[in-house]
Amino acid sequence: MAPARKFIRFSGSSRRTVPPSPPQPRKYKTIAEVLAKAEYAVVERESYSDVICEQCRSGDSADELLLCDKCDKGFHMNCLRPIVVKLPMGSWLCPKCCEHRRVRKFSQKRIIDFFRIQRSSCVDEKCGSPQAQDTRKRRKRSGPLVMQKKRRRLLPFTPVEDPSQRLQEMGSLASALTALNMEFSDDLTYLPGWAPRSANQAKLEKGGMQVLPKEDIETLEHCRAMSKRGEWPPLLVVFDSCEGFTVEADGPIKDMTFIAEYTGDVDYLKNREKDDCDSMMTLLLANDSSRSLVICPDKRGNIARFINGINNHTADGKKKQNCKCVRYNVNSECRVFLVATRDIAKGERLYYDYNGYEHEYPTHHFV
């Protein structure tokens, strides 16, 4: 099978971005720009020539030394975690100043509207839904756990039973998406002028693509139905000053549990070879490279956008991996899924390997 993930170009980021500030005019961003335009700049300090990076304590590479708009301290773009890929638009805050930024919170009504949850949802109920209970009963009757692991069938996620906890989970994702100016979407989006849906043909996959079994397709449909009713997977989006937005388990997750589908706007790989988006996902690798497709989750996406990657150059980094990214032929179309590779405990953060079988994306900068 072809690699599950392939990035177009090195963006140097762990894909977690600090919540952007509203665009504000700023004439100069880096130390080099300030010094070059010193005769025109209105600055509060007498000189910026002594500014150094707070991480590496060096003043070299002034064209990559960012100035924080709040504390006025300097940081090299490559020394930050997550690494800053390109010069920020508008104002920019360093990780320390960003820690105290207020995160937008959503009311129950706004969460329901944001995710277009059915109004008859179990979100308002005080017990687990009948559908979730039926799922647990079916699991118990399905046979010994050894047989399940041997067959390696996908398992549906098990929502937490507390409705208020599910609202908190959904609210955390809504806040993260809003901070990045993204819309929620649980489906692949085909925009006019981009790759059409007719271009997504699994038969074009170089070397062929594994077909998702009927039983697993039923599991996916069951998970989508649960999500639409507000029976959310036990996942919470949190913000870390080092990793940015990332995802942690809000309840136990069993091995081979379906976590999420990777969604976003679909486009041709050839149109995105010079794109700075650091979260592109391979959708189709065709024999004819001009027909290869990628998923771009910079405008639309779901919680898969915030699951972090491992540093696969270190033993400790590899130990953190607890899910994998897989591509399947689903009803003749390519789809990308994230699946648990072992039992995940509550509070554990989710990580997977961005590179698959190839090592084109340099992950040595990841924490």
Results as ranks from 00 to 15, higher is better:
60 D>Y: 06
199 A>T: 08
54 E>V: 08
225 A>N: 15
211 V>H: 09
83 I>M: 15
233 P>Y: 01
114 F>H: 13
122 C>A: 12
173 L>P: 03
349 R>L: 06
176 A>K: 04
254 K>G: 10
360 E>V: 11
297 P>R: 00
351 Y>D: 04
18 V>K: 11
267 D>R: 04
176 A>F: 06
218 E>H: 10
169 E>L: 14
44 E>H: 12
232 W>S: 04
281 M>C: 13
26 R>N: 05
219 T>E: 00
85 V>F: 07
349 R>N: 09
192 P>R: 04
229 R>S: 13
110 R>V: 10
203 K>Q: 11
294 V>Y: 02
11 S>L: 14
274 K>G: 05
197 R>L: 14
14 S>C: 14
358 E>Q: 13
23 P>W: 11
256 M>F: 12
359 H>G: 08
248 E>S: 09
236 L>F: 12
149 K>G: 03
284 L>T: 01
194 W>S: 10
65 L>H: 02
108 Q>C: 10
186 D>M: 03
277 C>H: 08
322 N>I: 01
255 D>H: 15
334 C>S: 08
222 H>N: 12
106 F>H: 01
202 A>L: 04
75 F>L: 13
336 V>G: 00
364 H>E: 13
190 Y>R: 05
332 S>D: 15
250 D>Q: 10
301 G>Q: 01
349 R>T: 11
338 L>D: 07
155 L>N: 05
343 D>G: 05
237 V>N: 03
313 H>V: 10
94 C>P: 04
280 M>I: 00
256 M>T: 08
6 K>N: 11
346 K>Y: 00
92 W>M: 01
279 S>W: 07
32 A>F: 07
269 L>F: 10
352 Y>E: 04
363 T>W: 02
308 N>H: 12
242 C>Q: 15
151 R>D: 11
204 L>Y: 15
214 K>C: 09
164 S>R: 14
144 P>Q: 04
212 L>A: 05
179 A>E: 14
292 S>M: 06
9 R>A: 09
18 V>N: 11
312 N>S: 09
217 I>G: 08
83 I>F: 13
172 S>K: 00
65 L>T: 06
322 N>D: 06
202 A>D: 04
137 K>G: 00
203 K>M: 05
128 G>C: 10
199 A>H: 07
286 A>K: 00
363 T>G: 07
274 K>V: 05
17 T>Q: 13
108 Q>D: 15
17 T>G: 09
113 D>C: 05
191 L>I: 13
164 S>A: 15
74 G>S: 07
17 T>D: 13
207 G>A: 06
131 Q>I: 14
314 T>W: 03
9 R>E: 07
65 L>I: 12
107 S>M: 06
128 G>R: 07
226 M>T: 03
244 G>M: 06
314 T>F: 03
58 S>C: 06
185 S>Q: 09
182 M>E: 11
285 L>F: 02
359 H>S: 14
277 C>S: 08
260 A>R: 01
320 K>A: 02
293 L>D: 06
